[in-house]
Design a protein around this nucleic acid. Structure first.
Lengths: 203, 203
DNA sequence: ACCTGAACACCGTTCAAGT
DNA sequence: ACCTGAACACCGTTCAAGT
């Protein structure tokens, strides 16, 4: 799929019908034989990524619920990182393609098999999925991370030390790699889930 | 600021230089007297929102660290929801405007004042900020939420019951309002932070 | 000195005309 | 029946020409 290739290599914005047509030595009008609008094209690209997310999912039976949640979220994040520009394409609408359905079914089944009640399973799944996508989006839309980090550090250093004591107190910690932020937050949520599960299982 | 008005009312995509020029009874070329590119215009709009985030921040001293985190995150989320289309504009680069700096300083100071160590304060701040933005983005890019929810329910109901047992098991729970997902995940992270703080304070 | 119409190189989508 | 060049109404940015 040439469209996914473009999104991977040059980002979501580079996926224009004219550019795609040129890659395929075709015209824009001809593309409309394969999809009915750019939105439809994007839905097809997105579902292709869900197919890969499903097929490359490692076996995660009998690992306990914490490890199951961790691997689910990490795997989703890894696939979205691998296909750099694709995350923003997921924002427009909730994915409704066949492979998205399969991926959701598998994830929910894993949570239920690990003892989550139905209300908690849904909430855990949707919240983790949104968490993963929220981070993936912030990763893929960053066009030049190094330049951005350099700018933010420079901006910090130009601040008045007296007026920004807290910022200067933590300045040595910046920048924290986004992957580390992702893991940090994920572990927080898993720790939080373990507390909820105590109540959930007792009721 | 007419640009922010456009973003609020018609979304980030509606903020084109031509449309903005028309609203101001001007030409596109004239706009370049006030900013040097569309990116620069967006940075100005974004910083305006940070100014509002800061000025409308309720006093949150002496509420304890959990309440402080909760109010910080909720307030950021509320302001981003109020200015619907603005969240996607925050994705392109880390905000570097003066009001963004002030907002960050105040947030970090609050965490430090509540007993967070510097490494934990930074991580808690950046992760919460990314969490809030990740959700806000998924809220503002949804052009027609009701239509989308109707479509997803319809898609679920067309699935084969035997092949999608987990999906059908939880179908009554859908859709969960995004605001509820946000609160659910935020409480998970706060619960997770309370566990980390135990180790953090002991060391 | 300041402003701006018009141009340039793009975009998604449509459709009449060609094979 | 299938394909597609050209058109339409957009976009950000630039600059020569006007005041």
């Amino acid at each position: 799929m040439a469209a996914l290739q473009i999104v991977n290599d040059e980002g979501a914005d580079a996926l224009t019908l004219r550019y795609l047509a040129k890659q395929l030595s075709s015209g824009t009008a001809t593309l409309y034989r394969h999809f009915e609008s750019r939105e439809d094209l994007i839905a097809q690209v997105v579902d292709r990524v869900f197919a890969e997310m499903e097929s490359s999912m490692p076996g995660i039976d009998n690992l306990g619920w914490e490890m199951t949640c961790r691997m689910l979220a990490n795997h989703m994040f890894k696939v979205l990182c691998h296909h750099r520009g694709v995350a923003p394409l997921l924002l427009q609408s909730v994915p409704k393609g066949p492979n998205a359905m399969i991926q959701r079914e598998r994830s929910l089944a894993l949570l239920l098999a690990n003892g989550f009640s139905t209300p908690l399973a849904v909430r855990a799944y949707v919240t983790l999925a949104r968490y993963v996508l929220g981070f993936a989006v912030q990763l893929s839309d960053r066009h030049d991370e190094d330049r951005d980090n350099a700018q933010i550090t420079a901006t910090f250093l130009k601040l008045d030390r007296a007026a920004f004591p807290a910022t200067f107190a933590v300045i040595d910690e910046f920048p924290i790699p986004l992957e580390e932020e992702f893991s940090f937050g994920l572990e927080l949520m898993i720790a939080g889930l373990s507390q909820i599960r105590k109540c959930d299982l007792n009721q």
